[in-house]
């Protein structure tokens, strides 16, 4: 049972077929679509220290997002973080080493955060 006060993006049930969800994201025309992303907020200023792993909050929304992250990360990890079929095996990682994490965030955010205006009453 989910807490009643979750924002509705986080109350959405997780995708059962995460690989299909990843394929759907990769088929999207990202050049003309809004790409939804949950991103971290990090303080990397010298001496601030909060870029180290912070403690968990008690807010249900935060716990839920972390659980959803686990769901998508674990599913993609089990599948070996598949690269797009058309991508050469030696394709450079233009993101600087973040491809796998970005895939997790893209699938997570597309399923939960991406606007679904057909549901607007």
């Amino acid at each position: 049972m989910l807490p009643a006060d979750l924002p509705d993006d986080l109350a959405t049930e997780p995708a059962r077929d995460v690989l299909a969800a990843l394929a759907s994201c990769r088929a999207a025309d990202l050049e003309r679509e809004g790409i939804a992303m949950y991103v971290a907020v990090v303080d990397a200023r010298p001496g601030r220290g909060s870029s180290d792993q912070p403690g968990a909050s008690s807010r249900p929304a935060d716990t839920r997002l972390a659980e959803l992250f686990d769901h998508y990360h674990d599913a993609l990890a089990r599948a070996g973080f598949p690269r797009p079929a058309h991508e050469p095996p030696d394709a450079p990682d233009l993101t600087g080493g973040g491809r796998e994490l970005i895939d997790v965030l893209v699938v997570l955010s597309d399923h939960h955060l991406h606007a679904r205006p057909q549901e607007v009453s």
Binding site: A36, Y38, V39, V41, G55, A56, A66, F69, G96
Partner: peptide, 20 residues
Amino acid sequence: VLEPARQRAAFAAGRYVRVV
């Protein structure tokens, strides 16, 4: 910021923002 464990910890700590 590219480490999955740190991303998860940031989410669990409420240190995230929604971006489109």
